[in-house]
Amino acid sequence: MMETLTPTLNSIVNDEEMSQRAINMLSTEDVEFYENLKPALNNLVKSPSEDIVNRILAFSKTF
């Protein structure tokens, strides 16, 4: 299953107080385009290798 990184599809901003600003600056066309773009952007998500993660955790234990 594809991971969705931006669960709130109705708004382009997180902070409530910023929503109005965003709506004022981004046209309906911009918002619709971004909504359509999100799945494609989510497809670009990558993860670091397990080896790197393990190295980080090992470093922490020795630091």
Partner: peptide
């Protein structure tokens, strides 16, 4: 915005 899910602030 997209990957970090950060607010504009």
């Amino acid at each position: 915005r997209h990957y970090g899910d950060l607010s504009f602030k």
